[in-house]
Design a protein around this nucleic acid. Structure first.
Length: 803
RNA sequence: GCAGCUGUGGCGGAAUUGGCAGACGCGCUAGACUUAGGAUCUAGUGUCUACGAUGUGCAGGUUCAAGUCCUGUCAGCUGCACCA
């Protein structure tokens, strides 16, 4: 027997797999299709992180198992290659981002191949490839034509470092998610996508898919549906203001009104106010603050009264003062609120600061002069006219009915979700395929001009005012209007990185199609993705965006299913050995090249699956990796014990059937760590036996193959039944042989374990109880006492309760 | 502050969902083979005042029986952050 030479073995089988093309998925095969998907990587300059193989190995195991079970498996790979780090590197090193991308992709490819994933490399896609982004642009044009893309001048998050507009999702604690620079508010005309139009469907259709619960709740919370009412307040100036409230039951307690400083009416009223200067000063003060500063100072409420104007509470008829304050957000609801300090803690804080009246309208709480009473589940309406005596739950519909009858308000649903800012003032992204014509406005370019390729530029820096680098490509910009034939200019903003990743799973189904993003046949054969695994961090970004695009494509008849992914799971992070997040600055980064070189791909794969519960974060451990290497070596060294016998060794038969069952079930539940533990136990059993048969050995190898494909393929070549192990059948087990003939039962006295007895499997209750009562230790303990009760759980235990 | 997740040996983690807590692996201890051991094999390894008792963040409760269910509480991680 040779030594376990993982380096040669792994290289050998990777070459064979590639030559034989044995992981190629076939379109339109009569076999049952199975589509397993991992989030395609961003090919960064740092190369693969040890976190990547955790997700990739997990689904590789399922893909390999499905192939053995006779499915036509699609397990594809590609590159989400547009994006800022590449562009920043390109700027710094004066090299074209395309070249940077090529280099990084080559490195990632090498690393992924070295790990032996069963990807169908013939379907590789790259979001920066014009033949790919042609279809990203095509989808955008359809959105535009359906009125779901619109341009709007709006305050955006502006990264002072990247000099680029960011979506709310990309701003983390007031700084840029990517570069960490400060983010400030800036008004800029941006392309927006109306994801809000799909808000309700994005919530409702979650019922139809099999996503882990955490993902569902996080998406629901992010979309943030709330049911409330819009109420119209007349002002003494003759104007009126509509406010949004989820607590219209408290309307009698509304003692003042607050507008956001950016509210349209504020500018209109300004000239008529008695304290014009004060209000103006507050507005400009608020505008200067970034969103971060505003929230930083959250506890301390500020504001200014609009003197000279009052609002009229529509149910009490009383005049109430009007304020502006930056705790009211212009982007949510109507940008105006009715303030009920007795029952809202923010209003309460504000009322205390400005000495405003606090009127209790829900009784049953503590003194509202000391603290706001916000509980909606108990309490009775007081000081509220026709609502008095009702519970909050009764009062809300009663008030809505009243408002609707009087024509001063109506029921209204609001969402926290905001439209998607789709413009980036950057070079390395898909050009937006629109032109601006003085006469016709924004006009889409003709679909047969797609792809609209990026112009060649010498430098990729953004312009001084944050305008796109594309603005420098004069020849490219100036064009003619497809509509009227007159002079027109191209849009110079590009799309965000989320664009290309919102539909890539569709392209994998038919990656070389020039006439459509994928053929109808391919789409209906493969859709939807059966199993999609990815990081929790993408739950409210990529996952939501791609569901939105997919629903749109469904609406226009391009894709056959409402939802893109049938099942979604999520892996935990792999932390550094010190338990902290892996990062260069912490110096705890593990390099996949090094560990694969030192222990082999199979050991790394095995360890990444054995490291802990798949959905939880766990620290890396070189010692643990070594343990897995040792396990594989023990599997390898079992060769010394293989004898010529046929079938399973009688002594091992039960253990083998149990292990087949356990490993198969555990893979499906992503309980890879316990599946591997079960195989380790089987190996221990094998070592305890006199010898093992080829069949014993081959079962172990087959079960282990999805985790450690190279070593098992090598052993199969020596001991197997010919052909590739990757294409043989997944083993069956005999249920009858997974149960023992005799079972050890625990005997408890008063709930404490005192003895153990052996009984035949399936022994009757009477028989078991009798045997338990006769057990020696039990006899001693119950001697002279009364047996009150005997509880017998067949196959588990007997508990004797005595007094 | 709100939402979600997690608390089990020296460490990573198991526990068929209410039924033998600590599977499997690491580490550690002792022994064997060795010129040698960061190799391999064998045995042991939750804690304690060790015949016995005790033990799953903490405090109660339900039950014949609780890591698992209920009530309260503390700590850590992640996400959101004045969403009316």
């Amino acid at each position: 027997m040779k030594n376990y030479d993982y380096k040669n073995i792994e290289k050998k089988w990777q070459d064979i797999w590639e030559k034989e093309g044995c992981f190629h998925a076939e379109n339109g095969s009569s076999k049952e299709p199975y589509y397993a998907l991992i989030e395609f990587p961003y090919p960064s300059g740092q190369g693969l992180h040890v976190g990547h193989p955790r997700s990739y190995t997990a689904l590789d195991i399922l893909a390999r198992k499905r192939r053995m079970q006779g499915y036509n498996v699609l397990y594809p790979i590609g590159w989400d290659a547009f994006g800022l780090p590449t562009e920043n590197f390109a700027i710094k090193n004066k090299i074209h981002p395309k070249l940077v991308t090529e280099k990084n992709v080559a490195n990632f490819t090498r690393q992924l191949k070295m790990l032996g994933f069963s990807f169908d490399w013939s379907r590789e896609v790259n979001t920066t490839d014009p033949s790919y982004y042609k279809w990203t642009q095509w989808i955008f044009l359809q959105l535009f034509k359906k009125g779901l893309a619109y341009k709007q001048e709006m305050p955006i998050n502006w990264c002072t470092g990247c000099k680029v507009g960011l979506s709310n999702e990309e701003v983390v604690n007031g700084v840029c998610e990517r570069c960490g620079s400060e983010v400030v508010q800036k008004r800029k005309s941006q392309w927006m996508l109306k994801i809000t139009e799909y808000a309700q469907r994005l919530i409702d259709d979650l019922d139809e898919v099999d996503y882990i619960e955490r993902v569902k709740t996080q998406q629901k919370n992010w979309i943030g549906r709330s049911e409330g009412a819009e109420v119209k307040f007349e002002l003494t100036s003759g104007d009126s203001v509509v406010v949004y409230t989820t607590r219209c039951d408290t309307l009698f307690g509304a003692t003042y009104m607050v507008l956001s400083p950016e509210h349209d009416l504020v500018a209109k009223l300004l000239p008529t106010l008695d304290n014009k200067d004060e209000v103006e000063a507050y507005i400009s003060e608020a505008a200067k603050k970034s969103e971060f500063e505003r929230t930083e100072l959250a506890k301390d409420k500020t504001g200014a009264q609009l003197k000279g104007v009052n609002a009229i509470n529509p149910v009490t008829g009383k005049e109430i003062p009007v304020f502006i304050s930056d705790y009211v957000l212009v982007t949510y609801g109507t940008g105006a609120i009715m303030a009920v300090p007795a029952h809202d803690s923010r209003d309460w804080d504000f009322a205390k600061k400005f000495n405003l009246p606090i009127i209790e309208v829900v009784g049953g709480g503590e003194d509202v002069q000391k603290e706001a009473y916000t509980d909606v589940s108990s309490g009775t309406m007081v000081n509220s006219g026709f609502l008095d005596g009702m519970s909050v739950k009764e009062a809300i519909p009663a008030m809505i009915k009243y408002l609707e009858e009087k024509g001063i308000g109506k029921k209204k649903v609001n969402y926290k979700l905001r439209d998607w800012v789709f413009s980036r003032q950057r070079y390395w992204g898909e050009p937006i395929p629109l032109v601006y014509c003085e006469k016709c406005g924004w006009v889409p370019i003709s679909e047969d001009e797609l792809p609209l390729e990026l112009p060649e530029l010498d430098t990729f820096e953004p312009g001084e005012n944050g305008e796109s680098p594309l603005a420098k490509a004069t020849n490219w910009i100036n064009t003619t209007c497809p509509h009227c034939g007159g002079k027109a200019v191209r849009e110079t903003d590009t799309m965000p990185q989320w664009a290309g990743s919102s539909w890539y799973f569709l392209r994998y189904m038919d990656p070389h199609n020039n006439d459509a993003l994928a053929s109808k046949e391919a789409l209906s054969y493969w859709s939807p993705v059966d199993w999609y695994n990815g990081g929790m961090e993408h739950t409210t970004l990529h996952l939501l965006y791609s569901r939105f695009w997919h629903k749109f494509l469904y609406d226009i008849g391009v894709v056959p299913t409402k939802e893109p992914y049938q099942k979604r799971t999520s892996h935990g992070m792999i932390l550094g050995e010190n338990g902290e997040k892996m990062s260069k600055s912490r110096g705890n980064v593990v390099n996949p090249d090094e560990v694969v070189n030192d222990y082999g791909a199979d050991a790394v794969r095995t360890f990444e699956m054995f490291i802990g519960a798949f959905d939880q974060s766990t620290p890396w451990s070189e010692k643990g990796l070594k343990g897995c290497y040792k396990f594989l070596e023990r599997v390898w060294n079992l060769q010394d014990m293989v004898t010529d016998g046929e079938g399973y060794s009688p002594a091992l038969e039960k253990a083998i059937h149990k292990t087949i069952k356990k490993v198969g079930d555990d893979y499906e539940k992503m309980k890879y760590n316990t599946a591997i533990a079960a195989m380790m136990s089987l190996v221990n059993d094998f070592y305890k036996a006199e010898s093992i048969t080829k069949d014993d050995y081959c079962i172990l190898i087959t079960l282990l193959n999805p985790v450690a494909p190279h070593i098992t393929e090598e052993l199969w070549e020596i001991y197997g039944r010919g052909g590739l192990l990757a294409t043989t059948e997944w083993p069956e087990y005999d249920e009858a042989k997974t149960v023992d003939d005799e079972i050890e039962l625990v005997v408890q006295v008063n709930g404490k374990i005192k003895d153990k007895i052996m009984v035949a499997n399936g022994a009757s209750r009477e028989e078991t109880e009798e045997k338990a009562l006769c057990a020696e230790k039990v006899k001693e303990l119950i001697d002279g006492k009364t047996v009150v009760k005997v509880i017998c759980v067949p196959g588990k235990l007997v508990n004797i309760v005595v007094k």
